[in-house]
């Protein structure tokens, strides 16, 4: 009886130690699921999902509070990836969230009064300039989130669609008619 108790306690102690060790050894910072979801999101930080950024949206999805079809910049491809990651069904965009062609913010430099409101609005610090100085968008950093458009008091910011250029040209999906020729 006693030996059995001792053996059981010993096993419990060893296993407990192993678990404790593993918890320290393999400790992961933060919530890995949130990071994985955040990884799929396009990081435009545009807030179209109704959350103040990509990370908060990822957190909400992970908590089961948000749908996976709230991110227009991610496109249907993004929804598909989220569905796969979370093991849920694909869900098409609702009518209120329709993906648009990727575009860049462009400041009309002759109209800009240098109020810095757009600089404060930009979530990725992609607008350069200082008070009373003309501002300009750093094109390579702009995510096309449109958050700078509304605050501008003189409406000098417009969104310009990124057209197809040789550098970003893609081969198209082959389209052909499978028709009878006779």
């Amino acid at each position: 009886m006693l030996s059995a108790l001792l053996v059981m306690s010993a096993i419990a102690a060893v296993l407990g130690a192993v678990l404790g060790f593993a918890a320290i050894k393999f400790h992961t910072e933060g919530n890995p699921l949130v990071d994985k979801i955040d990884d799929v999101l396009p990081q435009t930080q545009c807030g179209q999902c109704s959350y103040p950024g990509c990370k908060p949206y990822a957190t909400a999805i992970a908590a089961g509070e948000a749908d996976i079809n709230r991110c227009p910049p991610g496109g249907e491809e993004g929804i598909r990836k989220l569905a796969e990651l979370l093991g849920v069904e694909f869900k098409p965009f609702g009518e209120d969230a329709v993906p648009k062609a990727k575009s860049l913010a462009v400041i009309d430099e002759s109209t800009c009064i240098g109020c810095t409101l757009c600089i404060q609005a930009c979530p990725v610090d992609a607008i350069a300039g200082a008070a009373k100085q003309m501002h300009t968008v750093i094109a390579s950093e702009c995510t096309g989130c449109e958050l700078c458009v509304a605050p501008c008091p003189v409406d000098c910011i417009s969104m310009q669609v990124i057209g197809e250029k040789i550098a970003n040209w893609k081969w198209k999906y082959p389209v052909y008619a499978m028709t009878a020729t006779t």
Binding site: P42, Q45, G53, V124, D125, E141, T143
Partner: peptide, 12 residues
């Protein structure tokens, strides 16, 4: 691009 935007956003 997304990774870059994430870094810039976090920094901000």
């Amino acid at each position: 691009l997304a990774d870059k935007a994430r870094v810039r956003h976090d920094y901000r």
